[in-house]
Amino acid sequence: MTERGLRQLQDELKTLMFIERPQVIAEIAKARAYGDLSENAEYAAAKEKQHLVERRIRYIEERISRAQIVDLRTLSGNKVFFGAYVLLEDEEREIEYQIVGTDEADIKQGKISIEAPLAKALIGKEIGDEVTLFIVQKEKRFLIKAIRYISDVDSCTTESF
């Protein structure tokens, strides 16, 4: 994952542990005060929320403990690899994607998972190469127009193509 992806997971973990977990504990205590737990919908909902929060905490802790951070400052070149920003052209438009870890993927921000079919097709390709995907039984072709690697440590700095 990228450094930005690690920071996002660490921030989410802090929020879960120090804000959401205490809120859920308070909700459970409040619901217990209502009495009979066997027919207490508030208690059941709070316990379910607690289960979801605790499961997410365990998942994030596990992801952080196994994370391999890719320093994007050390990457460069003309081939597409993890962390690359890739400018693509299809029949309709140009679009840029960054290839990131699964926890960082957000298509609205132009970040696609390394596990996504498009990312898999792009890995190892160069500028001028064309990749073809079949999406809903329709062929879609993309031409790689540019590749760049920039650090996400300072997200305010970007390079233009």
Rank of each mutant, 00 (worst) to 15 (best):
E61K: 12
L75Q: 06
D71E: 13
L133T: 06
I114F: 09
E96R: 05
N78D: 12
V100Q: 02
G124L: 10
Q98V: 04
K125M: 15
Q98Y: 04
Q68N: 15
S113E: 06
Y97L: 08
Y85I: 14
G124E: 08
V100R: 02
G77C: 11
I95A: 06
G128D: 05
L75I: 08
E94R: 10
E115R: 08
V86P: 10
I114G: 04
K111V: 03
K79W: 06
V70Y: 06
F82C: 00
G124V: 10
I60Y: 02
I99A: 09
F134D: 03
I64H: 07
E92L: 12
Q68G: 03
A119C: 11
L122H: 02
R63E: 14
I95P: 06
D106S: 10
A84S: 06
L118W: 00
A116E: 05
L133P: 01
Q98P: 04
I99P: 01
E115D: 15
S113R: 07
A121C: 13
V86L: 10
I123W: 02
L118R: 03
A116Q: 09
K111D: 01
D129W: 04
V70W: 03
R93C: 09
E61I: 11
E96L: 00
D71S: 12
I60M: 09
K79Q: 12
E61Y: 02
A121H: 09
L122V: 06
D106H: 09
E62S: 14
E104Y: 11
R63W: 08
S113M: 04
K120L: 15
R93Q: 12
E104I: 11
N78Q: 15
D90K: 13
L75A: 02
Q98K: 08
S113N: 01
G128W: 12
E62N: 13
D106K: 03
K79G: 10
E115H: 14
V131C: 02
S76Y: 03
D129F: 06
A116W: 05
Y59W: 07
I107H: 07
V80D: 01
G128M: 09
R66G: 07
T74H: 14
K108I: 00
K120A: 07
R73D: 15
L133H: 04
E130P: 11
A67I: 14
G128Q: 00
I99Y: 01
K125V: 01
L88I: 13
D106T: 06
F82S: 00
E96Y: 01
E62L: 15
R93S: 09
I123M: 11
A116T: 04
V86M: 09
E96T: 13
G77H: 09
A121W: 12
E61L: 12
K111R: 08
I99D: 01
Y59E: 09
V70C: 04
I64G: 02
Y97G: 05
I60W: 03
A67W: 05
E89T: 12
S113A: 08
